[in-house]
Structure formats: C-alpha cells, structure tokens
Amino acid sequence: MIVAEQKSFKEIVEYLRGKYDLLIVPCMSCTAVCFAGGVQQGEELASALRIHCKMHGDGLNCTVRPVTRQCDPEFIEELTGEVAQADSILSLACGVGVQFLAERYPDKAVIPALNTSFAGGKTAPGIWEERCSLCGNCVLHVTGGICPITRCAKGLLNGPCGGSEQGRCEIDPNLPCAWQLIINRMNGLGRLEELLAFQCPKDWSTGNAGGLRRLVREDLRLK
C-alpha cells in the first residue's frame, strides 16, 4: 500500500489561509489503513481546524466527506455535489488522489493534507516500512523475495558491497544489510549457488526517469 503521514497542523492552516468553505476528503484505502487519511483522521482534522478557527476568529466551514478511493474517477465523481458547495478541497489521500481530484475539479483549490512517503507495509503496530521502489522491473525471483533495489542503501544487484558489519549496513547501522538478508534467505532455501550468477545492469527504462508512466490493458478498455 501507499504509506503517508499527515503534514503539520501549522502547515495545513497556512495553506488554508483565505479559504471559507472547505471540503475535507478522507480516502478509505491506503491512507486510511496507515492511519493518516481515514475518516477518523478527517474528523480529527476538521475538529482541530474548527477549534483553531473559532479561537483565531477565522470563519471556516469544514465538511468531511470520505470516498472509497480517490485514485479512481468513478468514486471521486460522487463528490460533485459537495465540491460545488466548497471553495477548496483538503485531500487526505496520497499524491495520486490529490492529483485525480485536481484534474476532475479544475476550478477548485485542491490542497494535500498528507505527505506521501513510500510503497510499503506494516511490520508491527505503529511501524511501516518501505518494500518497493516501483521500478517496474521486478527482480524478487532472483533475490529470494527481498528487494535489493529498495532495501540495499546502494541498490546493488550483485551484492553484498563488503561494507556491512554484523549484518548491518555501513550507511546506517540501524538498517539491516539487504544482501545479508538475501544470502540468509537463499541459504535457507538451499539456493545459495544461484547468487553466483551475475546480474546484468538493470533495465531502468521501466523506471520513472522518463516522466509519467502509463499502463494500457486493451482487454479492459472501453471500446
């Protein structure tokens, strides 16, 4: 999932200067699961903004209207009525949701309430870790299900670099060496010798260096 965290309250208040009718739109997907942009967080933010505005004499009318997924046009279409009543939209979705809202409602100011952090998952209650760099060319079959692109600080395809100590990365001792993990995993699977095969330089044409990426599935397109 996409992991995000809320911007500071001060920053959000700054973005809302001069706004009067605010539509707060939580997203019920990834950002709700990581407790950054769900209904509860939307209600909390609305209450906090109302209290702040009452205290500072700003007339701000906040309405909370969650949607199932902001990265899906058919769900954000449901907001049309509420958006018409608002002069700005505060999105609690990831950067994708914010942009979809901005594209669908071009005459409204769409403000992000979150910073989109990474693609990852929950490793323990309250802890999320990155697992995928979205490179578009997965090598997990070679590395025992551990991504060296994301988890190795140097992104090595033919590791280890030799700098790790006690299984810890030389860049950050709090970081486990991804290649140590890969070797341990492959050893456990009895596939250690597979790591002797040289990995050619990765094809980065599927990465995001060339601007926006697009995926087309002809079988799913409307004819």
Partner: peptide, 14 residues
C-alpha cells in the same frame, strides 16, 4: 474554554 458557543471571537466573516 475560548471556544465556548456564544463567545465572540471577533472573527472575519465571509
């Protein structure tokens, strides 16, 4: 509480 209903915050209005 400064946010009690009825308290005049002297705020700007639309």
């Amino acid at each position: 509480s400064p946010v009690r209903p009825g308290l005049d915050c002297g705020g700007r209005k639309k």
